[in-house]
Design a protein around this nucleic acid. Structure first.
Lengths: 334, 334
DNA sequence: CTGTTAGCGCCTTCAA
DNA sequence: TTGAAGGCGCTAACAG
């Protein structure tokens, strides 16, 4: 255990302890390729640094070098949940492999970029939320590179290969493929989710039209499920045989409402959600869902950040359709 | 919109543009109390700074001042979910009110504190994960104050008023209060969750003993629910009338297993989870749960960080028992 | 092979 | 009321 001391230990202290100059310390610690430094000296510096518990001050280093090795993830101001949490975790790990440190900041509704950038200067910002044009130029002026990832940023293409609209498309396709000619799309009312829900619905509409299927929409999801139950009954009467839910929570809500209403899943109506949440396997019947193969996605994003590549892949390789017992294949019964 | 430029704009540039010295710029921008600066000059500096899009470089400032205004939240390496996400969000907001910027970093299984601290030097670290003794002294040596919050940190009391054991205690108490004399505690196998699950179980054991109730434990939660279903049946036969689940997901799993096994909730067996997840209101019957009133908790933590207070409150004010229809009051039937 | 030196952008004491 | 100067800790070109 290094001795506790109040004054912070600087490179100068190490130099003195090792009996060399600060330059030498810097060279040794940064492993200069021009390592014409005798092994003996090297070791003396190293042990001195170790003994004192020395580590270079990141601020000073960044000041000198003109850039830090921090990647800032800007998150929207609603609670992090589901796949996003996983994505953050693995992106962080990937970047760490390249010597980059990922830090996340949740922005508040009304504060702008300058707040965070007043606290540190990242090398790159991964915007997972919308950014204004002013904020973009603010970042640009500071030489920070900007990457849009599931957020709207003026002048930057969204690098997420994952298109929200493809989710809705895939849900509808999964049902139509299995012989469902009339399907419904159920989404919650929360305006915060518009960024996700509108494109999904739009994709569902397009796919339904393309496949000549009927699509009806329903937005009145209540917690108790009372209104939902009556809706499910009427939908079933209207020959709706498949329901796409905005996400697995909504799907669960529908599942329970159907239970209570005497509508059997999947015999009377099939059901498919989004997120492939952990509880999808815990319901009866197990919920079908559209999951995310984020491994590839994260790897790509990390590569993009570290090497500034540009290749963008499509959703097809990311979305993972998980058909479980909540979906019935109507075309399989001759 | 400020003009785009490649070279970063420094205080010197502002000084030149305004035709004053750098000192004056610094004085104006930092609003020195000794403001003997003529209004005319003040305005010239301010407009120049605005026009150039100037903002002080945080690294340089931190270097000079000897401290940053960053609070670093160290998160465990599993995906963020549920209440933790909410806590982060509101803590961030609170700290921002005090001019502090909260950044979150998810640590990897094998990297230690020095990795992150090689990228920035926060004023305070909020440890929501376990820290080793070496890491503690590492932070101390750098003058970083350390706060343990739902994580084990040598030499630091856990400042979370929320004790995990109180959760288990409360679950059992909720059932015993309602006339259940024999209860079960069901938890998953995941070792990652030990930090949470073991204390909860322990609390449950203590409460059961104190109240003279039987407590049986079950850890074999499978996804399909097959084993769980047979267990539920045997538990019901053994006169278990109430089940506490480690969290709401497990509770859902149990609920569905019971459904399938012909065990009625709450008529045959009552059920209570933890987290008060959003889907608790979407099940049939709606799940009872122990939720978290994190508003108070966050406010306290923020105050602790900004003012270094020490007062610690207990779980009672934080845990919120939500009894819904999944719990039956046996003592109410005379 | 190693030490001297300059300067990154910022703040603040001290003179003028 | 403003300018000059020093130094925070670090790196790297440039001597020696």
């Amino acid at each position: 255990m290094p001795p506790r001391q109040h004054r912070k230990v600087s490179g100068k202290d190490v130099a003195e302890a090792a009996g060399v100059s600060r330059t030498t310390v810097s060279f040794v610690l940064n492993d200069r390729p021009n390592s014409a430094i005798p092994e003996e000296t090297r070791r003396r510096v190293l042990t001195a640094a170790e003994a004192l518990g020395y580590a270079p001050l990141p601020e000073a280093r960044a000041l000198k070098m003109g850039h830090s090795d921090v990647v800032l993830c800007l998150l929207p101001d609603w609670p992090i949940t589901g796949p996003l949490g996983v994505l953050l975790e693995s992106l962080s790990a990937r970047l760490a492999d390249s010597g980059l440190t990922m830090l996340a900041h949740q922005r508040r509704p009304d504060d702008d970029l300058s707040q965070v950038l007043g606290a540190l200067t990242p090398t790159t910002i991964v915007a997972m939320c919308d950014l204004s044009e002013i904020e973009v130029s603010y970042a640009e002026a500071r030489g920070i590179s900007l990457v849009a990832f599931m957020g709207d940023v003026p002048g930057r293409p969204d690098l997420a290969g994952l298109r929200q609209s493809d989710i809705g498309r895939l849900q509808v396709a999964a049902l139509v493929d299995r012989g469902h000619a009339s399907v419904a799309y159920v989404l919650p009312h929360d305006r915060n989710l518009d960024w996700f829900s509108e494109p999904r619905l739009e994709g569902a509409r397009e796919e339904a039209q393309r496949r000549n299927a009927d699509l009806i929409e329903y937005r009145d999801v209540d917690n108790g499920g009372a209104r939902l139950a009556t809706w499910v009954i009427s939908a079933a009467r209207d020959r709706v045989t498949g329901i796409c839910a905005y996400n697995d929570e909504v799907a669960l809500s529908i599942l329970m409402a159907a239970h209570g209403a005497g509508i059997a899943v999947p015999e009377d109506v099939s059901l498919i959600g989004v997120d492939d949440s952990c509880f999808t396997r815990m319901t009866r019947p197990p919920l079908s869902s559209v999951g995310f193969g984020l491994g590839v996605e994260v790897q790509r994003l990390a590569a993009l950040i570290t090497e500034s590549g540009t290749e963008v892949r499509g959703s097809d390789e990311i979305l993972q359709l998980q058909i479980r017992q909540s979906v019935q294949d109507l075309s399989a019964t001759p």
